[in-house]
Simulated assay, not measured.
Amino acid sequence: VCKLPTSTVATCSFRLDLKTSTKEIFRRADAVCFDVDSTVIREEGIDELAKFCGVGDAVTEMTRKAMGGSVTFKTALTERLSIIRCSREQVNKLITDHPPQLTAGIKELVDTLHQRSVKVFLVSGGFRCIVEHVATQLNIPLHHVYANRLKFYFNGEFAGFDETQPTSESNGKGKVISMLKEKHGFKNVVMIGDGATDLEACPPANAFIGFGGNVVRQQVKERSLWYITSFRELLKELEKI
């Protein structure tokens, strides 16, 4: 119920059955994990940081490769940050001057999930300082945020990133979901996102929903059993309960 192998040639009816099964898992999910960049928010946080620091073009191309799955996530993250080399002051100013923009419908969707006692988590390859700002806007507890941590020297200069965080590497989001299932006993966990790192988190997620409302990653679209372009599609599904 996660994705079709690239070598699989499925009949239309078979794929429809799997899509129906994915919808059913979503309707009875006890936890939903959202990617953040280009999913919950309209932009890629690391690309916005790169633009702010004057190295946007070089970093955007690396992001495209990382989201398409052509290079490992940790390699792409390391290379992009080595170009950006942002200071703590630059990060704080970015959040103040250009706060992340929520994707249409996400606030209503998260509110609806919360009303139904579904636990909502943000699982991101982006930076915790930015993702926490998003979580606050959505009333998501900060201990439900899993993201990468930037490191700075005492004078505020860039010192790298915390490589011990599971979200800093490929398959990291899957590791977070496995941990959540073990810790909380969740039976049905759904992963929603736009990129290859989200797709590969299922399994251990019980279902994956591809999101193309901000950007379409062709590999993800082709391999998603249920691919949406608006969060209102998920709201409509919840109304069936």
Rank of each mutant, 00 (worst) to 15 (best):
V120P: 00
G68M: 05
P5D: 12
T60S: 15
E44V: 09
F127R: 10
G54S: 05
I177R: 09
E157N: 12
T164F: 06
H144N: 14
E89A: 15
L235W: 10
R28I: 09
R232C: 08
C2H: 06
K240C: 07
K23C: 13
E200T: 15
G172H: 07
K23W: 09
A58F: 10
F73L: 11
V36N: 08
H98I: 06
E200S: 13
K183R: 15
Q115T: 08
T6I: 13
V9S: 10
I209N: 04
M67I: 09
G156I: 02
R28F: 01
L94D: 04
C129I: 15
T22A: 14
R64H: 11
K236G: 03
A147T: 05
G125Q: 03
G125R: 06
T167S: 06
F127Q: 06
A104N: 12
I130Y: 04
Y146V: 03
P166Q: 06
V71T: 11
N188I: 02
V134P: 03
I83Y: 09
F14C: 11
N171T: 08
K107T: 12
G45C: 06
N171M: 12
S7P: 00
E48C: 05
A201L: 08
I192N: 08
C33E: 04
G174R: 03
Q115W: 00
E61F: 01
I106T: 05
V190R: 05
E157H: 13
E24S: 14
T6N: 10
S168V: 04
D57K: 13
I241H: 11
R217S: 00
K236W: 07
F158V: 04
D35H: 06
N171V: 01
V36C: 13
Q137D: 02
N171Y: 13
I84D: 06
I192C: 07
I106A: 06
G45S: 04
F73R: 08
L225E: 15
V220M: 05
K240W: 02
L235H: 09
T39R: 08
F231I: 07
N214M: 05
E163M: 10
S178T: 13
R88D: 07
Q101P: 01
M191H: 08
L238S: 05
F152A: 01
T229L: 03
V9E: 12
N139Y: 02
K51C: 09
T167Q: 04
E169A: 15
K236Q: 14
L16P: 00
L81F: 14
K74P: 00
H143R: 10
L113C: 11
S224W: 10
Q219R: 15
R223F: 03
K151T: 11
H114A: 07
E182T: 13
F14H: 14
A50L: 06
G193S: 02
R128P: 01
A76Y: 02
R15S: 14
G156F: 02
Q219T: 13
D30N: 11
T63C: 04
A196W: 05
E79R: 12
S13E: 15
A66C: 08
E169K: 14
E44W: 03
V59E: 01
R15L: 15
T22S: 14
Q101C: 10
P141R: 00
G185D: 10
D111A: 12
V55N: 03
R223W: 05
R128S: 11
E239R: 12
D35F: 09
E169H: 11
E43L: 01
F231T: 03
A29M: 02
K183N: 12
A31E: 03
S7T: 14
F158N: 06
G193Q: 04
G105S: 02
S13M: 07
T78P: 02
